[in-house]
Nucleic acid binder design. Structure first.
Lengths: 192, 192
DNA sequence: ACCTTTACATACAATCTGTATGTATGTTAT
DNA sequence: ATAACATACATACAGATTGTATGTAAAGGT
């Protein structure tokens, strides 16, 4: 079968990312070897090192893929919300749903920051999921007549709280409790 | 010089932990090799693998040491606080001070969860620093006449927020802003 | 003093990563 | 259409790292 180079590249990258994703989730970054990955993808290490600079770059591609999916699901869930408060709460629930996809917490919350560094990971987070949270909080503070000088701080702190909640829920915590606690935090900063 | 076996063990373990700590902070877990560590400690790999099961176990010992120090500093800072609210805020500031020690955020917040796993790391956190936060929140909710059914959730969420604040401060964020934001979160959940 | 156990050093085997090199397939220009 | 080139991928290799196995010296018990 004859395929163009761009088609070959696209398919090969997708195959390697899919195989790597599965193995990184199952065994973690350190315990996943490049021979493992290429065997799962049915190719050789030559293909991997042709399309990715190194193992870390492939991991970064996997993480970016997941972050984009999470972001899209949050946007879809909160786009039609009536109020700023409701948009944040809808987005929170969508975030929990999205992070409940097996392996995502490991990729995005545990291994990502360690392998890629906190600053690189923060940039990914800010570019994707934190952007909508910041917007929601901005409107919430505006509605409540509060100064927006702590907007950045609140955004970061709440994003971290969401992350922890997702991990706790995965570990068996009661999702309802965490949703109520987050609602309480949101309401606490929006009223004086 | 003649030393007892227990003395030898204690000194060797301390020397290995100190050397490993320095290197893990400087280069990270993956890029620190066991030859590096034993060379810095002035011994051979035989000593390392005699006292620790593997490289990960040595890392765990380093992390546990740091977590204990952080916990002690929080306890010392909040022991004499007048109110529950003040105890939490004093503890928060002590936490930021303690996490400002170079390398601690990397060890405790970034590499620890990834290398040791989130559950193992959570147990360390809960055993040490989160215990005092939970106690403070419990009193705070009691004083405010609020039900303690979300105590666990609030403890986890706020602990995560503290962690994020420590990372943000280290990355150049304004510490005052984060302390004010945290105070706002605390006050938000303590009043109705 | 002898024997056992513990502490540590040295030697070894099995991977794993990244690179260098070789080959086949696709692309472009004449 | 085919020569010339670029891209995609496979194979081969060198260096480094981990954990273990084995050997030696020091300590502890009887």
């Amino acid at each position: 079968m004859r395929r163009s180079n761009s088609e070959r590249t696209e398919m090969m990258r997708a195959a390697l990312i899919a195989a790597a994703r599965s193995l990184f989730i199952e065994k973690g970054y350190a315990d996943t070897t490049t021979p493992d990955i290429v065997e799962a993808a049915g190719v050789t290490r030559g293909a991997l090192y042709h399309h990715f600079e190194d193992k870390k770059a492939l991991f970064a591609a996997v993480v970016a893929d997941e972050a984009r999916k999470v972001s899209e699901e949050i946007e879809a869930a909160s786009a039609a919300s009536a109020t700023a408060r409701q948009a944040i709460l809808d987005g929170t629930r969508a975030y929990f749903d999205s992070l409940a996809v097996p392996g995502r917490t490991r990729l995005l919350l545990l291994e990502g920051p360690a392998v890629l560094g906190s600053t690189a990971m923060r940039q990914v987070d800010e570019r994707y999921s934190e952007a909508s949270l910041r917007q929601g909080l901005k409107e919430l503070l505006a509605v409540g007549g509060k100064a927006p000088d702590l907007l950045d701080a609140f955004t970061g702190l709440l994003a971290a709280a969401f992350d922890r909640a997702a991990l706790a829920i995965e570990a068996g915590g009661n999702r309802e409790d965490y949703e109520r606690a987050i609602a309480a935090l949101i309401d606490g900063i929006s009223v004086k």
